[in-house]
Each structure stands twice: as structure tokens, then as C-alpha cells.
Computed example of a mutant assay.
Amino acid sequence: MNAFRRRTAVLAGILLLLTGTPARGAGADTTAPELASIDLSRESITVAGTDVELLTVSVRLTDDVGVVTRYDGAGGTSPFLFFGSRGVPVSLVFGTGIPQDGVWTGVVAVTSDWAAREQPVQVVAQDEAGNTLDVDPRTVIETPAVTVLSSHTPVVDVTVTPDPVMPNAAVTQTVRVTDKDTGLPWPRLPIAVGLDNSCPEDGISTATARTDANGRYQRIFPAGQLYQVVMCAWVPAANVPGQRSTRIGGDAAFPRYKFVVSATPAATSAPTGTNVAVNGSVAPPVQGKVVQLQRLYGTEWRTVGTAGTRASSRYTVVATPPGVGVWTYRVYAPGDTSHAGSMSPAFTIRGT
């Protein structure tokens, strides 16, 4: 899943701890902690498949009044850092030195889906006075990196069928896991499956399903309601002491529903140039959807009017027969990222 969204969610939760910082009076310290150095316990790591290798990160922080540990009430602490292109959160605990000049350490779990070269990308710390350091270490110090030699990475692929799906129809989520090196299915592998917010935010989950002998897992959401949320899956690694669990691989898909459009003219005939109201609705329900009234010219449909759906998902658009004769119309709802476009059945209005 999206590393930026995961990283943002974690950061937002941890920074809630700032609401309880001391008030700053006259002459109070206003200088944030400074990042002096970062060291890694290993320069290179070899990791395969679903294995986990641990890397210790040591961060030296200095401050006039002293860096402190603060808790956010949800398992997150400050100071902490984000590591690598996937934004893996790493809590830091006090190790050696003094609060004014000390080394804080954390352990990060390295998995086979890491990039070939990774390094810390953000450090956050707070001092006794409530001043906060929030910095990309690469902009202020020489930041070390670890070389990751990986193999046989689980590759997770998530699909949703049918595509598109009719409103209130059943939806099937299919998860397939293969070996990146061999391309072969990965049988009987523990996986985690999630929905909606758990996809970017769930950092402590354990396996909730398992692939079959063909490296596949399916779950069916029965007909009767809309499942218009992100559906995801990943391979969970074991929890690392002091850390949240680590994801290996991962993918997500979003059910794309097909618009169903109805359209009924208020009259089937009208004098030439007279406006005729055409009423209809769009499903799945959506407010503000712009629909297009189209008229048939020979073999070509041309847009001759537009309208937006109301809160009820209904709309009213105006058809005006341009001359004597039978004119064929339809209403089209264009597709978007969550829906496939569709049109109403054609209807006619006779101009008299």
C-alpha cells in the first residue's frame, strides 16, 4: 500500500502527544533538539522470502534542556524516525549519554521487499520544553544507508471482480501471491486482508487468512450493499520488540461500480422548441454527478444539455425538440475513478 499514507497516519498519531507539552513562559527555551549523527549496526543485509533481519539504528540527539520520551497513548513514542522508501516507523529509546547529549536506539525489521539501498528519511524528537525537531536527516547530516540483498520476495496481487460490478451485486476479492524470482504461486502462505482504513493504517495486524495450494485466497462479499472501499492484502512479518509489525509485499484494489442511469421524459411529444423535462436517477447514489443529455444525429450521439444530481441522486435535464419529427435521446453518466460510465435506455420525443 501507499507508503506516504501509512507514514502520514503514524506521524499524525504520534504528534498528538504535543498537545500535552508544557506552556512556554517568559525566557523559556525555544530551541528544538538537534540531530548530530545516525549510525547503523550493519552496512548490508541479506534477506529472503518471508524472513526478517534486524537492523539497529542509533541516533545522537543534543538539546539545551534535554530530549525526552513522550507517549501518544496508542503505542507510539517520541523520539522516532521513519526508515526507507516505505516509511517504516522506528521508535527510539534512550541508550547512552545524557538527555542533553545522548544516543537513542531503535530496531527496524528489514524484509525482502525493501529497495536495494535504504536509509532514514525523517527524524522526530521533542525536548523538555516542548520544542520539536522534525527533519529529513539527509538535509542536515551525512546519513548512512544499508544495502539490501533480497531474493524470493512474495509478490501480492489483489483483484476485485466483476469489473465493473452492478450496484448491490456480490463482489469477490481475489489475492494471489507468487515468488518474485521464480514466478511460481506461493502455497499456504499466511496473509493479512483488510478493508478501508486498515489498508494504510494497520501496523499491528497478524495473519487472518492463508493462500491455498495454488497461492490464491478469495473472499466473497454478498449482494445487498455497496462495498465501495479499498480491499487490500499483505504478508505480515513477526512483531519486533519495541516496533510495530512489518508488512511484506502488499496490494490493493477498489471495486468499480457501474452507473445505472434511468431517464423518463415528462412528455413524449411537444411543439418544436418547447422544453421537456427529463427526470431520472443515477445509482450508486452520488450527489453532484454531472450527467449529459445526448441526442442522436444519424449514427452519432451529441451532447445537447447537462445537469447535476441532487442529494437524492436524482436529476432533471431539459430536452428541446429542434424541429418536426421524432428525436432520439439518452442520458449518459461519465465514469470516474470509482465508477464505470453508463447510459440510460434511449427514448424518443416527437416534435410537432
Rank of each mutant, 00 (worst) to 15 (best):
A3N: 08
F4P: 00
R6N: 13
A12T: 14
L16D: 06
L17Q: 00
G20D: 00
G20R: 04
P22H: 04
G25L: 12
G25W: 05
A26V: 11
G27T: 03
A28G: 11
D29Y: 06
T30W: 04
A32D: 07
A36Q: 12
S37T: 01
D39Q: 11
V47A: 06
A48N: 12
A48M: 03
G49R: 05
D51I: 03
T56R: 15
V57W: 03
S58G: 06
V68H: 02
R70K: 11
G73W: 01
A74C: 07
T77D: 00
F80W: 09
F80V: 02
F80Q: 02
L81D: 09
F82S: 07
G84E: 06
R86E: 11
V88M: 12
P89D: 04
V90Y: 05
G95W: 02
T96M: 04
I98W: 10
V103G: 01
W104E: 02
T105K: 08
V107D: 10
V108R: 04
D113S: 10
W114D: 10
P120E: 02
V121T: 14
V121L: 03
Q122E: 13
V124G: 02
E128R: 14
A129K: 03
G130K: 05
L133A: 05
P137A: 00
P137V: 00
V140G: 00
T143I: 04
T143K: 01
T143N: 05
V146Q: 09
V148G: 01
T153Q: 11
V156S: 01
V156F: 08
T161I: 09
P164K: 13
P167G: 09
N168R: 15
V171D: 06
T172C: 07
Q173T: 13
R176A: 15
D179Y: 12
D181Q: 10
L184E: 15
L184A: 15
P185M: 14
P185Q: 14
P190V: 02
C199A: 09
P200R: 02
I204G: 13
I204N: 15
T206P: 10
T208Q: 13
A209S: 10
N214M: 11
G215W: 06
G215I: 08
G215M: 10
F221P: 05
G224Q: 11
L226H: 04
Y227T: 00
V230M: 14
C232K: 03
V235H: 00
P236D: 01
N239M: 06
V240W: 05
P241V: 04
T246M: 08
V261T: 00
P265L: 04
A266K: 06
A267C: 08
S269P: 05
P271T: 10
T274Y: 02
V276F: 07
V278Q: 02
N279G: 06
G280K: 05
V282L: 09
Q292Y: 12
Q292C: 08
Q294V: 00
R295Q: 14
L296N: 05
L296S: 07
L296Q: 08
R302Q: 15
A307N: 11
G308F: 15
T309V: 09
A311H: 11
S312M: 09
S313E: 09
Y315T: 11
V318K: 14
V318C: 10
V318Q: 12
T320D: 08
G323Y: 13
G323R: 15
T328W: 07
R330I: 01
Y332W: 13
G335W: 07
T337H: 09
A340R: 01
G341R: 03
G341Q: 07
P345H: 09
P345T: 07
P345Y: 06
F347V: 03
T348I: 00
I349G: 06
R350E: 12
G351Y: 06
